[in-house]
């Protein structure tokens, strides 16, 4: 990690409680520009809750979140998205009745504050069409541009899930298990997409798949019971006996 790069996303003493259960436990977290950071931890460690807090789907019980130095704790998910925070979801959250190209055009229009436009057909914004098609081509799914999203194969939907977040041109991108449930032969496609992300984007990757984590991550946080258990470079984490213990019974950590 380049310690000199400016901090883009930060959480301070972030706490989330559901009833009596603490899902996120006073988490201090910093993400620097261009980071490739993985968030790992056993099932139920509170990874997705943390992402939901960062992206504004959930409101924290206490603590604060900063994006580019601004306190965004009280901001809606919508406002955070406009400020350059994008995410994907562990379970696909797509628009079943739209086509991929429409989905991306809508996302682009939202980004450009052009989606209030109500009189001209979608296709009239040729710049949006071109950008959407280009993105689909980059991700290798231009062939399905005009099919209903609800009818796409799971792997293609997974790629579109990432494409939507990319179309937001984010400064910070949260990928929540991007390859989860994707069949082996379509996995490579998703890995390539993640590898090709521009270096200007700071990336948080939540993953169970350790191959994926050690292939991309330059730094790793291990989350256990909602709290940051240990942080460090991949080789430190891989050789940390405590981490091995946490993962005992789960997949053994390899580099």
């Amino acid at each position: 990690m380049n310690a000199a790069a400016p901090i883009v996303l930060e959480s301070r003493q972030l706490l989330k409680q559901f009833g009596g259960i603490t899902a996120t436990d006073h988490v201090d977290f910093t993400l620097r520009e261009g980071a490739r950071h993985a968030l790992i931890g056993p099932n139920g460690a509170g990874k997705t809750t943390f992402v939901n807090l960062l992206s504004g789907v959930l409101t924290p019980t206490s603590g604060s979140i900063f994006l580019g130095g601004r306190d965004i704790t009280k901001w809606s998910a919508r406002r955070r998205a406009h400020a350059g925070l994008a995410r994907t979801f562990q379970i696909n959250q797509l628009f079943a009745d739209l086509t991929p190209v429409e989905t991306l055009m809508l996302t682009i229009a939202e980004r450009e504050n052009a989606a209030w436009s109500w009189f001209r057909p979608v296709g009239a914004r040729t710049d949006f069409v071109d950008e959407a098609v280009e993105l689909l081509t980059t991700l290798g799914i231009a062939d399905i541009a005009h099919l209903r999203v609800g009818e796409l194969a799971y792997g293609k939907q997974r790629l579109l899930e990432i494409a939507v977040a990319l179309a937001q041109k984010p400064k910070v991108l949260l990928l929540d298990e991007p390859a989860a449930g994707v069949p082996e032969h379509e996995r490579e496609q998703i890995l390539d997409v993640v590898a090709a992300l521009p270096s200007s984007v700071a990336l948080i990757l939540i993953e169970h798949d350790m191959h994926l984590v050690f292939r991309f991550a330059k730094s790793i946080s291990v989350l256990v019971n909602g709290a940051i258990f240990v942080e460090g470079a991949p080789d430190e984490i891989a050789n940390d006996p405590r981490v091995r213990q946490v993962y005992l019974g789960e997949e053994v950590v390899h580099v």
């Binding site: 992206s55 504004g56 789907v57 809606s76 998910a77 919508r78 406002r79 998205a81 406009h82 994008a86 995410r87 979801f89 959250q93 797509l94 628009f95 079943a96 009745d97 739209l98 429409e102 989905t103 055009m105 809508l106 996302t107 229009a109 939202e110 980004r111 052009a114 989606a115 209030w116 436009s117 109500w118 009189f119 001209r120 057909p121 979608v122 914004r125 939507v164 179309a167 937001q168």
Partner: peptide
């Protein structure tokens, strides 16, 4: 048929994601 109309269909389909893309 406009972007606005498309955004309505998106809201009907998945309000969670529409907020996440800044709508």
């Amino acid at each position: 048929k406009s972007p606005f109309g498309l955004s309505l269909l998106a809201i009907k389909g998945n309000p969670l994601r529409t907020r996440a893309i800044g709508m």
